[in-house]
Design a protein around this nucleic acid. Structure first.
Lengths: 187, 187, 187, 187
DNA sequence: TTTT
DNA sequence: TTTT
């Protein structure tokens, strides 16, 4: 239930490989940055201008696993999610705010890199109804709805005690929480 | 022209009256904050939870004038715009980032407070094709497309030398630019 | 799962009271027609023109019940759904096609008639988590996600054997299926 | 201006090469059919099911030219437009209705076949600000906003007397209007 | 800071 | 058939 509508639709390319983390309950949370760009001709100088907008996207639930598995730096993707601004503390103790696009069970994701030519493996038909395939799927997914049932998104705080069914695709980071950035920029 | 899609759709209520400012060329720029909220039942406690999300929306062009004229604290509105994160300097000299929903000629706005019951005046038929009605329209607008032709949104920096055709609906603030906030919070 | 994106977003007014029907399993299916309109100034004659577009919207699951209960002729509503064109047989035996906006568990609905002024009853706080309130809620709902789990929408074909928990708001039609139209027009 | 919101967002693949026609004033009108598909597992049989939805999309203005030039059977594309149901006469003299997604100056289109690998020619930087490039661009466009200023879309009715600046990419069909279908199906 |  |  909601009062109001809070919807974001993006098509863009990943600036980096996804970062996958796990919540205490084993649920994956995957962060990516997406670039969209506008270009226009300056009215005064007649020069062609371009501005790239970077979006911080956070996937939850099953989409987090799919995103972590199939998306890579440069991947083109469609996402549908909701805006969420969260508050965090800078190193100077001051509040900072970061706005993200949350893609959970209410959102969707669809890979747009056509025909699997970007994968490193061959084609393999898979039933994606089951949450935890025993082997690594090698075919890019198309759209999926999220499988994270939580109404509100929690922040991942630590490694799961038990290895999740879907092992991380990314090398594990050394200790450090979600907001363990080098400095105060939001991403 | 654009590479990618960057679209936001919101329906929410204004937290405050709009703030209208003017660019040197006389174009209006109107800021509002919009609330959307989600509610859900906590899975563990069974308690009803609610979270309100606040969105900073910036209107440009003709929509800026319409928003300034017809929207008020509490107004319910539909907006369609694009995400833009802009960088600004905190008082400590450090970079801050604020994400806004830009509603310009590529976006739309529609008032959802039905039947004009929130206006202070009576009904008056108007031709909205003309940019600067000489008298105050008293009928809430519905949808409008923006009339701001600029590809990229400039920041308003000063009072217009000549009184714009559409006089400000808000009392003029004392000197101080667009980013003249009391402290470091983005809004 | 899906290949592609198929999304419709409408804000419009109901042309008639909703029509609620029930599937054999007791699930409600609710049909409404929504009007959206465009107006523009003819470039040659300078005359103001208007065109109203009528949309056939079909709600499934919990949203079907809410729509049947709270929407009425004239109600303003936001819907998010998917396009579906279905084929049916005209009286002359020829194929006809009707395109509808399907609002099921993947869609949303939100009533936009503010402040309950259109209801016929008083205010009553309700927990909407439960699927079948024993008494008629009298407060307009806001947004809801659908509760119909079916991947593909079936057509309702007959009265439910057991009275559904949520009794129909509309007088029962005499026998006749979903497509029992008077003539060959799609709606 | 509009009362209400009427928006469709699709990502799908073209079922056929585009059909380009020209209005008396030389404006292009391009028709494509787009497929989106859903798949789900039948709850009773456990069988994997799939349903393909076909959408009739009509481009106007500059987007019509771009669509005609760059889209081909199988192309993946993002479109944003509005629903419009138009009435036409079947061979039996009875009314038929066809619902289309109109993509004009209020909509957008973006090709999603990455990196120009589908084109038949090499890369060539182009300024797309000018409406009628003298030579055939060979690089797939990304997003464009429509350039057709008309508030209401007219139907193309005949060949242009003068060759339009952008010559048709498709072999000219023999005489026959827009609705010159073999039979009564809408497309 | 809104709204219900 | 709605709405303004």
């Amino acid at each position: 239930m909601a009062r109001g509508v809070n919807k974001v639709i993006l098509i863009g390319n990943l600036g980096q490989d996804p970062e996958v983390r796990y919540m205490p309950n084993g649920n994956a949370v995957t962060n990516v940055t997406l670039a969209t760009s506008d270009s226009w001709k300056d009215r005064e100088t007649g020069q062609q201008q371009e501005r790239t907008e970077w979006h911080r996207v956070v996937f939850f639930g099953k989409l987090a696993e799919i995103a972590g598995q199939y998306l890579r730096k440069g991947s083109k993707v469609y996402v549908e999610g909701a805006l969420r601004t969260r508050k965090w503390q800078g190193q100077d103790g001051q509040d900072r705010y970061t706005t993200e696009i949350v893609v959970d069970i209410n959102g969707t994701m669809q890979m747009l890199d056509s025909r699997g030519e970007q994968g490193q493996g061959g084609y393999q038909q898979q039933s994606y109804g089951q949450p935890a395939p025993q082997q690594q799927p090698q075919q890019p997914m198309q759209q999926q709805q999220g499988g994270f049932g939580g109404g509100q998104s929690q922040q991942p705080q630590q490694r799961p005690q038990q290895q999740p069914q879907q092992p991380p695709q990314q090398p594990q980071q050394p200790a450090g929480g979600f907001d363990d950035f080098d400095d105060d920029i939001p991403f």
